[in-house]
Structure formats: structure tokens, C-alpha cells
Amino acid sequence: MCGRAEDLFTPKAVAALTKLFGPFGWRALDRTEIRPTDQLRVVRPGAEGYDAPLARWGLIPERMTEDEAKKYAMFNARIETLERSRAFAQPFRSRRAVIPISCFFEWPVRQNGVKTKVRIARPDGLPLLAAGLWNCTEDGTASCTVITRPAPADLVGVHDRAPALLLTRDLEAWLRGAPAQAQRAAASSWQPGLLTVLPA
């Protein structure tokens, strides 16, 4: 599950994002805790390279208003059920995106039953590139969701789900590949041992 994130990008992360996607004001927001319904930067294929608009975190499906969407938790979408989901199937076929974040947070339950907030990030200061979907309503409201997958082995003790993080080699498959290719990339790109889990 991914319900809290951060976009405090290091200079190294800004350089990497600029090289990958372009100069899209990566330090414009600098938030320590992003929650569902807040704005996320959404990188998607554009006419010349990429676009990177801000979008509401929590997908608003077609034929649904923002008020109606508030009744549902659509800030995450399970990779296993994308193709048969009424809310996510069409965006998965034609509106895939990458959502850069600096970290995400979880609250694992410790032995004493107390939940402790942890920060999950790359130790090298590079950004996390989460697979996502976007949509735009008739009134022009942009929205997005973060894809989740079963947690890699090193995060199972934190939560049984994790964002579907992408290595740069798999960006093209996720953004422009056929649905089956994109699903494989999101489900398997990220490998154990690349993240640190530290008290937040």
C-alpha cells in the first residue's frame, strides 16, 4: 500500500529526473508528507518527449465527478487486477504514467503491537519512479493513482504491498509497451536490496 509519500528531491535526484524527463520544476513543491487528494507530479508521454503536469492523487474515473470519487479509495491500483477493473482498465490501456517521489512511508506493526512510522527510500539519494495511471475529467481535473504490487522480499516485514517501482530500463515498457509487457514490467522491475527502511 502507498498512502503517504514525499517529494523532497536531492540535487542528485533533480539532475537524474531532468536527464530522464526534462526540466519540470522538480523542487517546486518540496513536501515532507503527501497524502491522497494532494497533487502529485505525473510524467507521461507527450508530443515531444514528456509532459509532467500536477494531478490529484486519487484517480477520478470517467463518468464520475470528484465528489463521487471521494467515496472510494482510488489512490492505489493493484497490478494484478488492472485489466479487469472498471475504474482502472481504460487508463491502464492508454494513460500510463510515472510518478517520481523521494520516498514513501509505512506504519509496520512491531512486536508490542505499536505501529511505527518508517521512511522507505533509496540510500543513494536518487528518486523512486512509481508506475501510475492518470485521467482527466470533462471539466479538466487531472487525477492519478499509484500502482502497487506484492512487496519485494526485503519489505515484507513492513507491508505486504508496495508501490510498483520502476528501474530506468523498464520505463519504456511501462509507458509505451503493450498492456501485457507493461504489466510484467511493473510487477517485476524492482528487486530486493535497493531501498533502506529507517525510522521517520
Rank of each mutant, 00 (worst) to 15 (best):
residue 92 F to G: 03
residue 92 F to S: 05
residue 5 A to H: 01
residue 153 A to R: 02
residue 185 A to R: 15
residue 104 F to N: 02
residue 128 L to H: 04
residue 100 P to K: 06
residue 8 L to Q: 09
residue 42 V to A: 10
residue 6 E to G: 04
residue 9 F to M: 10
residue 104 F to M: 05
residue 151 A to Q: 02
residue 118 V to C: 05
residue 177 G to D: 14
residue 160 D to E: 06
residue 64 M to A: 13
residue 153 A to D: 12
residue 101 I to E: 07
residue 15 A to G: 14
residue 151 A to V: 09
residue 185 A to L: 15
residue 114 V to W: 02
residue 58 G to M: 10
residue 52 A to T: 03
residue 189 S to V: 01
residue 7 D to Y: 04
residue 16 A to P: 11
residue 194 L to H: 08
residue 130 A to I: 03
residue 71 K to F: 11
residue 187 A to S: 15
residue 84 R to Q: 14
residue 167 L to F: 07
residue 15 A to C: 06
residue 4 R to W: 08
residue 180 A to M: 10
residue 172 E to F: 01
residue 140 G to I: 06
residue 37 T to N: 10
residue 112 N to G: 15
residue 78 R to Q: 12
residue 137 T to D: 08
residue 143 S to C: 03
residue 85 S to K: 03
residue 68 E to W: 09
residue 188 S to E: 09
residue 103 C to S: 15
residue 22 G to A: 04
residue 125 G to C: 12
residue 117 K to S: 13
residue 152 P to H: 01
residue 167 L to G: 15
residue 4 R to Y: 07
residue 61 P to F: 13
residue 69 A to P: 13
residue 32 T to E: 14
residue 166 L to Q: 12
residue 183 Q to I: 02
residue 97 A to T: 03
residue 59 L to V: 09
residue 135 N to M: 01
residue 39 Q to C: 01
residue 35 R to C: 03
residue 56 R to C: 11
residue 75 F to G: 00
residue 86 R to A: 13
residue 15 A to Y: 06
residue 153 A to H: 00
residue 33 E to R: 11
residue 53 P to E: 13
residue 173 A to V: 10
residue 130 A to M: 14
residue 93 R to W: 07
residue 138 E to W: 02
residue 36 P to M: 13
residue 101 I to K: 04
residue 185 A to V: 15
residue 153 A to I: 00
residue 94 S to Q: 14
residue 26 W to R: 07
residue 8 L to C: 11
residue 28 A to G: 01
residue 138 E to Q: 12
residue 84 R to W: 11
residue 35 R to G: 00
residue 20 L to N: 01
residue 61 P to S: 13
residue 15 A to T: 13
residue 140 G to T: 10
residue 190 W to E: 13
residue 70 K to E: 13
residue 197 V to F: 00
residue 15 A to M: 09
residue 68 E to H: 05
residue 100 P to I: 14
residue 166 L to C: 03
residue 19 K to F: 04
residue 35 R to T: 03
residue 7 D to Q: 06
residue 101 I to L: 13
residue 113 G to Q: 08
residue 82 L to P: 11
residue 37 T to M: 09
residue 192 P to I: 04
residue 56 R to W: 11
residue 2 C to I: 08
residue 52 A to N: 11
residue 86 R to F: 05
residue 26 W to Y: 07
residue 83 E to L: 12
residue 44 R to T: 09
residue 155 L to K: 00
residue 69 A to M: 05
residue 171 L to S: 12
residue 71 K to T: 11
residue 137 T to L: 04
residue 72 Y to N: 11
residue 149 R to G: 01
residue 152 P to N: 05
residue 178 A to L: 12
residue 68 E to S: 10
residue 79 I to A: 15
residue 120 I to L: 03
residue 190 W to K: 01
residue 74 M to Y: 11
residue 152 P to S: 08
residue 25 G to I: 01
residue 115 K to C: 02
residue 3 G to H: 05
residue 113 G to N: 10
residue 66 E to G: 05
residue 168 T to Y: 00
residue 12 K to T: 13
residue 105 F to T: 06
residue 16 A to N: 11
residue 88 F to N: 03
residue 50 Y to Q: 06
residue 89 A to H: 01
residue 75 F to A: 04
residue 118 V to G: 03
residue 77 A to N: 07
residue 100 P to D: 03
residue 138 E to A: 14
residue 145 T to E: 04
residue 150 P to W: 00
residue 65 T to D: 04
residue 184 R to D: 15
residue 188 S to R: 09
residue 88 F to G: 10
residue 137 T to P: 03
residue 169 R to N: 04
residue 126 L to K: 08
residue 64 M to W: 14
residue 37 T to F: 10
residue 43 V to T: 08
